[in-house]
């Protein structure tokens, strides 16, 4: 089910792949691709899964860690632009994303004000949504992805 979104994210030509942060050299040496999401927050993406690292707290969250659910995004219809001609229109439900007629089961949690984590597909899909700047960062089957979020009229 989540394969179609992951497939779309991975198949893009000239994707808006976020640059690799070199601020966590030990993680980089271990083979993780570090994506800077905020000044003190990083998403580490690799073949063995993903980790969200909160440098301010010195704590990390992985796909198997508990995360208090958030319904702040429930009902939100947003466009994730991840390459020049690639936009994924997603509707966020309490525990799923509706994407191209499919319901992708995910968990959605608040990491901090304005920063949300969406994960699913047994750890293969992760999205960090910055709802202040309307940017997103993520991992799809171990590959870093990212781009901008376009707000859509919610009644459409």
């Amino acid at each position: 089910m989540a394969g179609s979104l992951i497939g779309r994210l991975l198949a893009a030509e000239r994707p808006f792949t976020p640059f690799e942060s070199l601020e966590l050299p030990e993680e980089t040496r271990r083979g993780a691709y570090a994506v800077k999401c905020e000044e003190d927050a990083f998403l580490l993406v690799g073949k063995d899964g993903w980790r969200f690292f909160d440098a301010a707290k010195g704590s990390a969250i992985t796909a198997s860690d508990p995360l208090p659910p958030s319904d702040a995004l429930t009902g939100w219809r947003a466009e994730l632009a991840f390459a020049p001609e690639e936009i994924a229109v997603c509707v966020f439900k309490k525990d799923a994303i509706l994407f191209e007629g499919e319901r992708l089961p995910v968990r959605i949690g608040a990491l901090r004000p304005g920063l949300f984590l969406v994960s699913g597909a047994e750890g293969k899909l992760v999205l960090i949504l910055d709802t202040d700047r309307f940017l997103f960062y993520g991992g799809a089957d171990g590959a870093p992805v990212g781009g901008y979020v376009k707000n859509m009229p919610q009644d459409s």
């Binding site: 976020p18 640059f19 942060s21 070199l22 601020e23 800077k36 999401c37 905020e38 000044e39 927050a41 319904d71 702040a72 995004l73 429930t74 009902g75 939100w76 947003a78 439900k93 309490k94 949504l129 709802t131 202040d132 700047r133 309307f134 940017l135 901008y148 707000n151 919610q154």
Partner: peptide, 28 residues
């Protein structure tokens, strides 16, 4: 049934000029 109560959905605050999509500052 989905919750149909109107609530505040994400909306970007006002940023200076063209700076909304500015990436996080780099400290490398």
């Amino acid at each position: 049934m989905e919750n149909t109560v109107k609530k505040e959905l994400p909306k970007p605050p006002v940023f200076e000029g063209m700076s909304q999509y500015r990436p996080p500052l780099c400290f490398e």
